[in-house]
Design a protein around this nucleic acid. Structure first.
Lengths: 248, 248
DNA sequence: GAGTGGTCTAGACCACCAA
DNA sequence: TGGTGGTCTAGACCACTCT
């Protein structure tokens, strides 16, 4: 079967982008020009451009035109080993800001309960943080801590009433001081398209997926002391892991 | 400003999906029914359903209807520590198959050269593998090995002519036997939307991103012995990392 | 005001599937 | 054969930006 007109337009535009005819930041022909060029109707051309937009290749700006997106810079890298400051820029800039958005007690529920090895009806401290870079949120951090850990660590509770997150000691340091030393983290990484809430909070353009990280932190005896879910903006986040290999 | 009709239809359908009115696997109303229900034109309804499809929530099947996708099972997990067998199913099934697709000598180029710490014009062995689960490819593995490593390891070359990948010793084992023991891997994880090639090879439905993993394997002295790029199907792949934390 | 992309329509025709 | 979703059209009107 013949190639659809819309797919053909999209393919040729895509080829022109990857071969450098339209470098990052440059402007694609106007929709009206593409209509003339391919003898296609408006909605057909828009469908073709829409394919590129949903692939994250271009961005459309009403009143201006269509522009090639620059996807070369995924600046922020997350290293689990450095949970203390959580963020390090690959360029060596300062860590990203870290804002506490909400904190409350709730039941663990089946998912979090399994990750923390506690019963689903146990109370856990649920906290949400937004990691910023400039004014933009680049990652949503949801964390759950069992009640007995909170009791021992104690001053986590001080954060409950403060929305502004001071440069306090991080959770891992507090846990060590309380005797619940975290010694190992396991992180499962997945990807998916964002839901409307993610788009809203992270300010995601079309065609950008999110990185999901499910973390469980354990103490020396293997008992979970904390679990977290991270939702990162796919165009601004990368994760970095360094793992030793078992020698033969 | 009023909510667009298309967005309104999409939002209500989305809400009906998440609240269980349309559970995974169930069928959404036909386009013609939604046209009547909302008094909207065909293309408007299709745009709304298209939003859900691009979010990975539903799948449309010509001649049948629109169905809610089941995204609960991301069965395959990748553990870098177990590079020997590369894949382990969370359910404990056998590792996925591993097919050598191509192998050839080429110049490292700037990107691979930097990752391997060799000059861009140095020759490297470039190999492509497809990781299968059943008949489907779930991950594309591109690997680059410097010429001097290949010389010492030697029998990597045996794979050059074979398209079927026998259950041979894996690369890490061969390297250890040759004295180039890999002792550490660094993996950078990103996500993006697939390009048409990815869609073709991985058989990706609309609205599914890919997981990109950039790996560098180093020996005991910190010299790179291998680098790889993994492109994983976002609906069938997860990565799993376990990292020890530095004790205070 | 002129030009951009965004929304929406009513209708035609095509490709695929089941009975 | 009848119903499904997919493609494409020609045209109207809207929202936004710059001059």
């Amino acid at each position: 079967m013949a190639e659809k007109l819309r797919d053909q337009i999209a393919r040729k535009l895509r080829e022109s982008i990857v071969d450098g005819t339209y470098p990052p930041g440059s402007q694609l022909p106007y929709i009206t020009e593409l209509m003339d060029q391919y003898g296609a109707a408006r909605e057909t051309v828009r469908g073709a451009v829409g394919q590129l937009a949903h692939s994250g290749l271009v961005t459309t700006m009403r009143g201006h035109g269509t522009f090639v997106r620059d996807n070369t810079s995924v600046a922020l890298a997350y290293h689990p080993e450095r949970a203390a400051q959580l963020w390090s820029q690959q360029t060596g800039e300062a860590p990203a800001a870290n804002q506490l958005v909400s904190a409350r007690w709730e039941k663990a529920g089946p998912d979090v309960g399994e990750r923390l090895s506690v019963a689903p009806d146990k109370q856990v401290l649920y906290r949400v943080r937004h990691h910023h870079r400039g004014r933009q949120v680049v990652q949503i951090h949801e964390g759950w801590i069992p009640a007995d850990i909170v009791d021992r660590v104690g001053n986590i509770g001080a954060n409950l009433d403060s929305v502004e997150d001071p440069p306090e000691k991080d959770l891992y340091t507090l846990m060590r001081e309380a005797g619940d030393s975290p010694s190992e983290v396991t992180e499962d990484v997945l990807t998916r398209m964002p839901d409307p809430d993610d788009v809203e909070i992270l300010g995601l353009p079309p065609g950008v997926p999110v990185l999901m990280t499910y973390r469980v932190t354990r103490d020396g005896s293997g008992s979970p002391v904390e679990t977290s879910t991270f939702t990162g903006a796919g165009d601004r986040i990368s994760l970095s892991y360094t793992v030793p290999l078992n020698q033969k």
